[in-house]
Amino acid sequence: MSGDLATWPGLPYALLFLEWEARFPQEWTRHAKSWGTKQSLIRDMARSHQDEAVKAKLTDLVEIVVRRAYRCKDREYVRVARAVDSADLRGRLDRAVDSDSPWARYQAGYVLWLLDHPELPNTRHVWRAWVAGQAAALI
């Protein structure tokens, strides 16, 4: 992608690609698996200025991703969460933390914690410390 995200003609297709992977992971893996493309698109979405419609779609994607079992490059969605941080996103993440799914509880809790600590990088070390309950030592 080059230029402004809002005027990029490929934006609807990029969002559709990410939504396909988020909602139908097995089919996506069978037909379109490209972890590098997924990572690049997520990073582009997080770096660019988004209009309200794109922010809404990205908020939906963050919610979908934290509620499912982790897939390759999902950690990149923290960038998106930071870029579209809002009361709506935090409310959705709070509901995921209260869900019956252990995946949702951990992933949503971690994203919320990183939203509250923007100075921390989203690394495996930080994730492991947070899961182990040692995150306070990082701040």
Rank of each mutant, 00 (worst) to 15 (best):
D60V: 03
V131L: 15
R30M: 09
W20Y: 15
E119D: 13
D100H: 11
A69S: 14
Q107V: 03
W8C: 12
G3H: 06
L93F: 01
S101H: 02
K55H: 12
K55C: 15
W103L: 02
R30A: 13
V80N: 02
S34C: 10
M45S: 03
V65I: 14
N122A: 15
L15N: 05
S86N: 03
V62A: 06
V84K: 02
P121G: 13
Y110C: 06
D51P: 06
D85Y: 02
W28Q: 03
A46S: 11
G91Q: 08
D44G: 11
R67G: 13
E19R: 14
L41I: 12
D88K: 10
K73R: 12
K55R: 15
K55M: 12
K33V: 02
A83P: 01
A14M: 13
D94M: 02
R82M: 00
R79N: 04
L41V: 10
R67P: 04
Q50Y: 01
P121H: 11
A104G: 07
Q39S: 15
L61R: 04
G36R: 05
L11Q: 08
I64V: 14
M1K: 05
A53Y: 07
T37C: 06
A69I: 05
I139L: 15
A81M: 03
Q50N: 15
L16K: 10
A53K: 12
K57F: 11
L11Y: 04
H117L: 06
D98P: 00
V111H: 06
L18V: 06
F24K: 09
V65Q: 04
L41Q: 04
E63N: 11
L15I: 11
S40H: 09
K33Q: 13
D51E: 12
S2R: 14
D98W: 02
A53F: 10
D74L: 00
Q39G: 13
A32N: 09
D44E: 13
K73E: 07
H117Q: 08
R124V: 12
R47Y: 02
C72V: 10
L5H: 04
T7C: 07
I64F: 04
T59N: 08
D100F: 08
Q134S: 14
D88F: 00
H31K: 10
H117V: 09
V126Y: 09
V78I: 09
V126Q: 11
L11W: 04
D51V: 05
D98Q: 13
Q134N: 15
R68M: 08
T123F: 07
D44C: 11
A56H: 09
G91W: 01
D51Q: 06
R75D: 07
Y13G: 12
T123H: 06
L112M: 14
N122P: 06
E27D: 14
S101M: 01
P25E: 01
Q39Y: 13
M1R: 07
Y77Q: 00
T59W: 04
R75G: 09
R71V: 01
W113T: 10
P102S: 11
I64E: 07
E52Y: 03
W28Y: 14
G3W: 07
R67Q: 13
A32M: 11
A56Y: 05
R43K: 13
S34V: 00
Y106S: 12
E21N: 08
D98F: 00
S34T: 00
L93E: 01
L61M: 12
S101V: 04
